[in-house]
């Protein structure tokens, strides 16, 4: 694979918007992502996830600090050069009449084809490979407008794959999807990172899938940014800082958040297996603490 040494590295970066005045959204960001890693970017709304992704994608220049993509700093790239290293899937829903799946995925070949966009055999092989990788073989002639949200998101990922870049960035790829599609999609991303050696970064609000599939997490907190494997972040208590601790409580054993409730009564439950787990859950919902015994 040609992905040796290609990675994303942020050293003391400040992100934000520069127009008449500079608005810094977040500063002092030091993070990295390695080849073959699936990186989940987690954080509350408004904490700067989208700004970070736009900066990583080259749409916004970093206000200060050093952002290295592959071997160079991000602003040293020409548009076309960057497009061969980094592909981007945004939250925007694509609705184009009469555009079929094959033609949309083939747009991923844009930086590699000639002036007229002529597809050579190699291009067509990569397009087909990308369609197979997201499990959409047989959908080539289907119109994008007639697909479900999950299918359309897979097409957009196939387009990024066809771009054949060592780094893929996705902004909330699971936002419009139902539960089973969320798991399936994140699993596809994880497989792609493993089998193709790509660095895949995605932002999400869905902790469960991120915890089970990602190799690394970038945890964007209000006053700091943590990174590490999901397991390390759980064990060192970083997750508790993610949400308002007065309202939510992170269960380290189950890897999930719970709304904090004042418990007034105590109960002792005996039993085992699934029945015990779910009975305990029902009691807790009603404000009754179940004692360990």
């Amino acid at each position: 694979m040609k992905n040796q040494g290609s990675l994303v590295q942020l050293e003391n970066v400040a992100i934000g918007y520069k127009s008449h005045t500079t608005k810094v959204v977040k500063s002092g960001i030091t993070l990295e992502a390695l080849p073959s890693e699936l990186v989940a970017i987690i954080g509350e709304n408004g904490v700067g996830k989208s700004t970070l992704l736009k900066t990583l994608g080259g749409f916004l220049p970093p206000i200060e600090g050093k952002l290295t993509i592959g071997e160079k700093s991000v602003h040293e790239y020409q548009e076309k050069e960057l497009a061969k290293i980094l592909s981007y899937v945004s939250t925007e829903q694509i609705r184009v009449p009469n555009l079929n799946v094959y033609d949309l995925v083939s747009l991923g070949r844009y930086p590699h084809t000639n002036w007229f966009g002529k597809l050579m055999t190699e291009d067509r092989l990569l397009i087909e490979e990308a369609i197979v990788a997201v499990g959409l073989q047989g959908f080539e002639d289907r119109l994008v407008n007639n697909l479900s949200d999950g299918e359309r998101q897979k097409v957009m990922i196939a387009r990024a794959l066809a771009q054949d870049t060592p780094i893929i960035i996705l902004d909330e790829p699971t936002a419009f999807l139902d539960l089973s599609n969320k798991f399936e999609l994140v699993h596809i991303l994880q497989q792609l990172a493993r089998t193709k050696g790509k660095t895949i970064l995605f932002s999400t609000h869905d902790l469960t899938t991120a915890l089970s599939e990602s190799d690394r997490m970038w945890l964007m907190l209000k006053d700091s940014i943590q990174q590490g494997s999901p397991e390390d972040l759980i064990l060192n208590g970083s997750f508790n800082a993610l949400f308002d601790q007065k309202k939510l409580n992170f269960d380290r054993e189950k890897g999930d958040f719970k709304i904090r409730k004042t418990t007034t009564r105590l109960a002792i439950v005996t039993g085992d297996g699934e029945r015990l787990t779910w009975t305990t859950k029902a009691l807790e919902r009603n404000g009754i603490l179940v004692a360990d015994h």
Partner: peptide, 17 residues
């Protein structure tokens, strides 16, 4: 070729180089 990329909007067109 430009016009094909414009179909996806300017952000995507830019990210395609």
């Amino acid at each position: 070729k430009f016009l094909d990329a414009f179909l996806l909007g300017e952000n995507y067109a830019q990210s395609l180089g």
